[in-house]
Amino acid sequence: MIPLLFGISLVAFLIANAIPADPINANLPPNALNDEELIAAFRAKWGLDEPLHVQYITYITNVLQGDMGTSIKTRKPVADDIRQFLPATIELATLSIVIGLTMGISFGVISAVWQNTVVDYFVRVFALIGVSFPVFLLALIGLTIFHSELGLVGGPGRLDFIVRDPPKVTGLFTVDALLDGDFDKFRNALSHLILPSFVLGMFVSGIIARITRSSLLEVLNMDYMRTARSKGLSERVVVIRHGLSNALIPVVTIIGLSFGNLLAGAVLTESIFAWPGIGRYMFRASTAQDFPAIMGISMLIAVIYVIVNFVVDILYYFIDPRIRVA
């Protein structure tokens, strides 16, 4: 894990630096570009006048001491920025995964149990639509129908304009509002959270449904399924207890792998729903060539990726007794 993190920091650093793009153009006002003195001061301030390897070593030393540098765009420490923007993404991603898993696994099971029927056909087409529709199109259609036309959910942003943020404890607005005992605020936060989560969840559910279906189909043909049936177990117990629990391993793997998809979707979803999360922060940083921020986010995402896949490994342990024995 440590070498991977070093490698990722190096790749991010090289991409951020080895390419002929000048953060000066992106960050100084046009009328300052003729001012040699100002430019030199800017370079010195951000260490841009040092040779590359010195810059990298300085960066790594600072990161190890908990200092990820200062964002050129927001002029705040990157670590602070991450602390500010991460909770919004965690809130969005958690609900999306819950929605994606619920929809994906149920659709997958339905589709496998009624294989080659009309139901199966509909579910499969639905799953294909889920993975084929651009996230931004789903988001726009969802906003038009459920926000503009029906008024069922809140629009972009985490709360209505007139509602103030709940007192910060976890940074998750729904949780913080509940902790504060403010149910109106909770409802408001939830009404803004639900649509982006559904959009993002749809995106993940397509993949999960597809994997669940093929994995369960394989399991349903196993000898032990016939054994379970011949013991006289009800079809529900056979499918859920004997079938699904054996079919879940590839599904869990896919959850770990689709984490990247989720983040990619989050960049798009957050930009449409004006969701002040990490995805939007990363997007703004990259258009401003804000290298400290890009580096910081890349490191953060790499760490999360490693953690997610570690959790997936632990989940295997619970799902598959064979791994426990070995």
Binding site: L4, I8, V11, A12, I15, A16, I19, A21, F259, G260, N261, L263, A264, V267, L268, M282, F283, S286, T287, Q289, I294, I297, S298, I301, A302, Y305, V306
Partner: peptide, 16 residues
């Protein structure tokens, strides 16, 4: 280990 769009964002941002 890099999510697709994040890496692509970084590269396009750097290249223009």
């Amino acid at each position: 280990a890099f999510p697709t769009i994040i890496l692509a964002l970084a590269v396009t941002a750097a290249l223009g």
